[in-house]
Amino acid sequence: MKFWLFLFFCFYSLAGNAVVKRHDIPPEDYVLNKIPAYLIDMPHEGHGVLINSQWVVTVAHTIFYDYIGKKLIVGSKGYEIESVHIHPDYTQPHKGLLKGDLAPLMSFFKSRSDIALIKLTSRGNDVEPINMYAGSSEKGKTITVYGRGATGNGLTGEDPDTKSLRVMNQFQNIVESAEGNWLVFKFDEPANALPLEGMHGSGDSGGAAVIFQQGVPYLIGLSSWQLGHGDIASFQGGLYGTTAYQVRVSNYQGWISSVLGR
């Protein structure tokens, strides 16, 4: 039992996000005092993003059980979940992938579509949804990413004991590649880093990555997983040099439109 609990926590360190920070910047500099209203907390853990007055997008691995009838807080009100739509190319890893060499699990993560849509029973009119980025030139853009999971720094990695604090943080990074399903960035050491350089880790999957154009935010990605090497038993999330993968929202415009149009 303890072994499978260990695998569970390893898996959600790999597939998740939090705000792991530069070690040489005061942690409070990353704290977000005014939380964008389009950021939605999921029923169990993780985040979604309001993209329509009645629809929330998230990563599929935040759907831990049947959420129909559960409530999401949008602005100051609670709205029941009417339906959940998981991308047909999303699958759960089998137990054999959650032990030993990480390479097969990493290939599995990369091959699937980690995205889901949630429909609310009624429209929320007190919160403005975020627009989705519809272009295909994400590479080189600076993204701002939000999350309230475990935190830590690039020298020591994330600290699971901070996960329960649920403090909303933000960090920035630069998209290094944008291909197919994924946006990719790396957590650079201070010499090559942005002032609020950071990395997602455990406890806050589905956190929004946004870009700003003329001051207007656009949803460009959803935090999904970290690239790990070696044995899963020795994995430490959030270290400098770690590569992160985010769901590339622009790649799913057709699927999103087809679901919203039902």
Results as ranks from 00 to 15, higher is better:
95 K>G: 07
63 I>Y: 04
92 Q>C: 04
60 A>C: 13
95 K>C: 01
87 H>K: 14
49 V>E: 05
78 G>Y: 05
94 H>E: 12
45 E>M: 03
90 Y>K: 14
59 V>S: 14
104 P>T: 12
79 Y>N: 05
58 T>Y: 07
45 E>K: 02
94 H>Q: 11
48 G>V: 04
74 V>N: 07
103 A>I: 10
61 H>A: 08
72 L>H: 00
96 G>E: 14
44 H>K: 08
83 S>P: 05
64 F>S: 08
53 S>T: 15
61 H>M: 06
79 Y>W: 04
104 P>G: 10
55 W>H: 13
95 K>P: 00
53 S>E: 15
77 K>M: 06
95 K>I: 10
96 G>W: 08
96 G>H: 10
92 Q>T: 13
79 Y>P: 01
54 Q>V: 08
84 V>S: 03
48 G>N: 00
79 Y>R: 07
52 N>P: 04
93 P>H: 10
72 L>S: 00
59 V>P: 01
89 D>C: 12
44 H>M: 05
55 W>Y: 15
94 H>S: 11
86 I>H: 03
64 F>R: 09
91 T>S: 15
100 G>P: 10
90 Y>S: 14
83 S>Q: 14
75 G>V: 12
93 P>L: 10
45 E>D: 11
43 P>S: 10
82 E>V: 02
43 P>E: 10
45 E>R: 02
71 K>H: 12
53 S>G: 01
42 M>N: 06
77 K>T: 09
103 A>H: 09
44 H>C: 08
47 H>A: 08
104 P>R: 11
75 G>W: 11
73 I>R: 13
66 D>W: 01
101 D>P: 06
99 K>G: 05
83 S>V: 05
82 E>Q: 13
59 V>L: 05
66 D>P: 01
47 H>L: 12
52 N>S: 15
101 D>L: 07
83 S>F: 03
48 G>K: 02
88 P>S: 15
99 K>F: 04
78 G>D: 10
61 H>V: 06
97 L>Y: 09
56 V>S: 04
75 G>T: 12
85 H>E: 14
50 L>K: 04
80 E>L: 09
92 Q>A: 12
60 A>Q: 13
60 A>T: 14
69 G>I: 09
78 G>S: 13
91 T>G: 04
89 D>W: 15
99 K>M: 11
99 K>Y: 06
95 K>V: 08
88 P>D: 14
80 E>C: 04
83 S>W: 02
99 K>W: 04
97 L>I: 08
50 L>R: 06
93 P>K: 11
98 L>F: 01
89 D>P: 03
71 K>F: 09
53 S>H: 14
101 D>F: 03
41 D>Q: 07
74 V>E: 03
86 I>D: 03
96 G>M: 10
65 Y>C: 07
87 H>V: 12
44 H>Q: 09
59 V>D: 03
88 P>T: 13
67 Y>A: 00
71 K>N: 13
88 P>M: 12
97 L>N: 06
60 A>H: 13
59 V>A: 14
71 K>L: 07
71 K>P: 01
89 D>L: 15
99 K>H: 07
98 L>C: 03
65 Y>G: 03
55 W>F: 15
98 L>H: 02
46 G>N: 04
82 E>R: 13
94 H>T: 13
79 Y>D: 00
